[in-house]
Design a binder for these strands. Sequence first.
DNA 1: GCTCCGCTTTTGACTATACAAATAGATATA
DNA 2: TATATCTATTTGTATAGTCAAAAGCGGAGC
Lengths: 234, 234
Amino acid sequence: MSIYQRIFTDIETKIISGAWRPGDRIPVEHELVAEYRCSRMTVSKALSALAERGMIVRRRKTGSFVASPQIDRTVMDIQDISTEAELAGHEHRFEILARKIERLGEAEAQQLSEPADAEVLRLQCLHMVDGRPNAIERRIIMLDAVPGAREESFTSIPPGKWLLEQVPWSKAKHVIRAVSADTVTARILQTERGEACLSFVRQTWQNGRTVTYVEFIHPGDRFQFAGTFHPAAN
Amino acid sequence: MSIYQRIFTDIETKIISGAWRPGDRIPVEHELVAEYRCSRMTVSKALSALAERGMIVRRRKTGSFVASPQIDRTVMDIQDISTEAELAGHEHRFEILARKIERLGEAEAQQLSEPADAEVLRLQCLHMVDGRPNAIERRIIMLDAVPGAREESFTSIPPGKWLLEQVPWSKAKHVIRAVSADTVTARILQTERGEACLSFVRQTWQNGRTVTYVEFIHPGDRFQFAGTFHPAAN
DNA sequence: GCTCCGCTTTTGACTATACAAATAGATATA
DNA sequence: TATATCTATTTGTATAGTCAAAAGCGGAGC
């Protein structure tokens, strides 16, 4: 493994593991030069590659800093607002419909590849945009991975945003599909039973452990994803 | 603009414009060194960046080559097969349901930001996976951008694949949403009217001109997108 | 207090060079 | 003929420096 790759993965690991959190300052180049006993070019190459991937931000004179996770953030933005009339001054509210702590069922445990007796926080939220229901959020938070969630009421901050602050730089898998609204979903979203809805599922890991599993169900007539999507292998 | 950026964008432009096509060999480093009157490190940096973005492939001794466009290709793969049981030996067929040459309507011209009198090839295809309908493809091909489409019957090669060979390295915009199947769609997809379907729209440009606009409609019970999605700004 | 100037730190770009690793193609050998 | 070896080419990594640009900071002058 090359020096430059070692520097790259060392820093990447520190960021993904949470040891270095967003906003933290990264050692300046000459410190890394001393630490790895290599030339400045080598350090620079590693840091530039990290910057290009959006994991760090570099500024002259002030140094390099861990960036805010932008993968989930862009997805988050898209979820919070209807992309069609993006940034056009929509107001977003949310309310918690249900909140309980329990253990994973057998079927879910299988689906998440987690032990069946794992303690989880189960949340159900309703997101409103301009006063109309825009999404149901059904979320499972693994309490052993995020113990702080046990005491959080999520009345002032949505669970997604809260998790983003607690668990920076996770890896995620997404699934998008179309589903018909069942009776309960239709009632909550104020739409018809059988209405086409967009289901957006995300499972998030940190250090190989599941952090959260969430499904957003959006009414088809009020939501779409837009942008340049790059489905990746893992 | 730095030398390394100039090299990068020069080559990127040649690839996106189609001047250099997939498989074409890129000048070796020492030729670019001579052309740009710079050091090998600078050339190397530009080529490495292009390689990291997947635009070129580099191999020792043989040189660097224009890569095959993998953005559309991954999306293509996902469209051809149901991702859930990915690579599990599904067979894919398609048939052309309609094919006609006409001029863009006023509404569509508006939507595509193209002149209303532009001549287009309008296609409708049905994609089958394991003998069951998996997608309707409704496509518009701009004939001034791709004149060769006028004589292509698309009986042996799907339009998406054919275009990929004709128009390498385009930029694309995607929209994903959920829709209800109308009567016609439901009949073609052999499903119920009102069934939730996943609509996947892609508009493709090359050199600022629209090349094609396509909508895939997948039955919700037989299709999903999976993977790690990175919605990008442009 | 405020503005401007210069100093210093940090990143950005670049050079010229060196050696290593991969490998296609030519050559020699069994 | 088949196989092993050599060689030349091309990329990959690294060094040790230079000069430049950005920007925070402190001090001089008003």
